[in-house]
């Protein structure tokens, strides 16, 4: 394993720790809210990764990875982070009471900022990764076949998630009543779409790995 690759793994591990810290919520770790520190750790790790990528463009990913596999990894990392934030929002919204019905409430305000930063980071890192293989074939029939399989898998998972949601609504009417409000329901639907895309990318990453094994 090269030094650059090892550094990539360390940075991603630090980013994952930061994301996990953000997910702990206001009660945090042993009662201490580590959210702001965890958020700073996460974004610092992502920006360092970007600098690292610019400096060691050819060595950040293993050379046996195709462009589509690299993009799937980048998408998986960013979508996992987006999912963390959306899950946090869905947990916080029912506790807000009437405030949850407003488009701008105390739970969504920090979310938009975080999502904006993540999407910006995703675009920048994605285009930096794309530039690595400039001038060569970036997508071919094998990549398209993997993408097709991943899409079919993700659609099946989405159907299962919808069935699970319907069963939960029917069998747990009391608990689900807090979720049956237009704004929360809209966020649940968006979360389902994000989950579908995340699963599609996880499958893609797994498929490429399996083909190499």
């Amino acid at each position: 394993m090269t030094k650059a690759l090892r550094r990539t793994q360390v940075l991603l591990a630090v980013a994952a720790l930061g994301a996990a810290g953000m997910f702990l919520g206001p009660d945090g770790w042993h009662g201490i809210d580590i959210g702001p520190v965890a958020s700073a750790v996460l974004y610092a790790a992502l920006w360092l990764f970007l600098v690292h990528l610019a400096k060691f463009s050819g060595e950040v990913f293993p050379e046996q990875w195709s462009q589509a596999e690299k993009q799937a990894w980048v998408a998986t990392v960013f979508l996992a982070l987006v999912s963390f934030h959306v899950a946090n929002l869905l947990i916080a919204l029912p506790d807000l009471g009437a405030e949850a019905d407003q488009l701008r409430n105390s739970a969504t305000r920090p979310l938009w900022l975080n999502l904006g930063m993540l999407i910006f980071g995703w675009i920048v890192i994605g285009s930096a990764v794309r530039r690595q293989d400039a001038g060569t074939v970036q997508l071919d029939e094998r990549d398209l076949r993997v993408a097709h399989r991943a899409s079919r898998f993700a659609n099946a998972m989405l159907a299962l998630l919808i069935v699970w949601l319907v069963v939960a609504l029917v069998t747990l009417p009391e608990q689900s009543r807090t979720w049956l409000r237009p704004y929360i329901a809209a966020n649940v639907l968006i979360a389902l779409l994000i989950a579908r895309t995340l699963l599609e990318n996880i499958y893609t990453v797994w498929r490429y790995r399996r083909e190499r094994a």
Binding site: S66, Q67, V137, Q138, D140, E141, R142, D143, R212
Partner: peptide
Amino acid sequence: AEACGVTRQTIIALEAEKYSPS
């Protein structure tokens, strides 16, 4: 790979017989 218009990773997968081409 360049002569066939595919990625080098596809040639690697083909040689390892992990992928059947069109």
